[in-house]
Design a protein around this nucleic acid. Structure first.
Length: 222
DNA sequence: GCGACAG
DNA sequence: ATCTTGTCGC
C-alpha cells in the first residue's frame, strides 16, 4: 500500500464523517493514547473509560504489538489506529464518546486520527491535539475558555482552546458525530485542572506504565 | 528551493 | 513519540 493510495483512502473515508451531534446522552467518555519502543519496534495502545460526570475511571484496556507503520505527518492514524482498536475491542463498556490525542477534521484531507477512529467504530469522537498540524489562527485571550477559529484558508477546521489560564492552548476539532461547539464544551469539562483532557491524561499514564512494565519483564528474560 | 510537519 | 536531572513553584 503506497502513500498516494492511502491519501486517496483518506479522501474517500472523509466523506463518511458526520459533523453534527448525534448522541443525545453521554454518560461515559473514553481517552486513547499510544506509546512506542523504537528499540524493540513495539507499540502500546491504551483506552480508558471515564464517567462523564465524575471523571472517575471505570475501565482500562491495553494492547502491545509490533509497530506496523512509520510516522508520517498526515498519515498518522494508520500508525495509531491498529493498537487502539485492539485495546478498544477488549472493553466491556461501550463508550458514548472518545477523545483522541490528535486531530480530527483539522487535517490536510479532513481525516485525522479522530475521524479515522470515529468512522471505523461508528462512535462519536473528538480530536484534541497538543500542537498544530494545519491552519492559522489569531491570538486568543489568556484566560481559560478563550478560543480562536483554526482556519485553513476560509474554512473553519477547528478551534484553538485555552484550557487553563496563561497556559498554551490545545487544538480541538470534530472527529465524528459531534459538532465543533459540543467538542469544545466537552474538552472544557474534561480539563477542570490540567491543560489536557482527563481522558487523555489517564490514557497517557496507562501507556507509559504498561510500556515500562513490559520493558522490565522483557529485560529479565534477556 | 524553503519552510511546515498530529505523535 | 523518545532521548533525559534537576529544579522552580503551588
Amino acid at each position: 500500500m503506497d502513500i498516494n493510495s492511502l491519501k486517496e483512502a483518506q479522501l474517500s473515508l472523509s466523506k463518511k464523517v458526520r459533523a453534527s451531534d448525534e448522541k443525545q446522552c453521554v454518560e461515559t467518555i473514553a481517552g486513547v493514547d499510544v506509546a512506542y519502543n523504537e528499540q524493540s519496534s513495539e507499540v502500546v495502545g491504551a483506552i480508558t473509560v471515564l464517567n462523564a460526570d465524575t471523571l472517575k475511571v471505570l475501565e482500562v484496556q491495553t494492547s502491545i504489538e509490533p509497530i506496523s507503520f512509520p510516522y508520517i505527518p498526515g498519515l498518522f492514524s494508520f500508525r495509531e489506529v491498529p493498537p487502539l482498536l485492539n485495546a478498544y475491542n477488549k472493553l466491556t463498556i461501550t463508550p458514548d464518546l472518545i477523545v483522541c490525542d490528535g486531530h480530527g477534521l483539522a487535517h490536510p484531507r479532513r481525516f485525522g486520527l479522530a475521524c479515522h477512529l470515529g468512522v471505523t467504530l461508528d462512535i462519536p469522537t473528538i480530536g484534541c491535539g497538543k500542537t498544530k498540524l494545519l491552519g492559522e489562527f489569531n491570538k486568543l485571550a489568556a484566560h481559560r475558555g478563550a478560543t480562536a477559529d483554526l482556519l485553513d484558508n476560509d474554512e473553519v477546521i477547528g478551534k484553538v482552546l485555552r484550557t487553563q489560564d496563561n497556559i498554551k492552548p490545545v487544538y480541538v476539532s470534530i472527529g465524528h458525530k459531534v459538532s465543533l461547539d459540543t467538542a469544545v464544551e466537552w474538552v472544557l469539562k474534561l480539563t477542570p485542572k490540567y491543560r489536557l483532557p482527563e481522558t487523555t491524561r489517564q490514557a497517557d499514564q496507562l501507556v507509559n506504565k504498561t510500556l515500562k512494565e513490559h520493558r522490565e519483564k522483557t529485560y529479565e528474560k534477556t
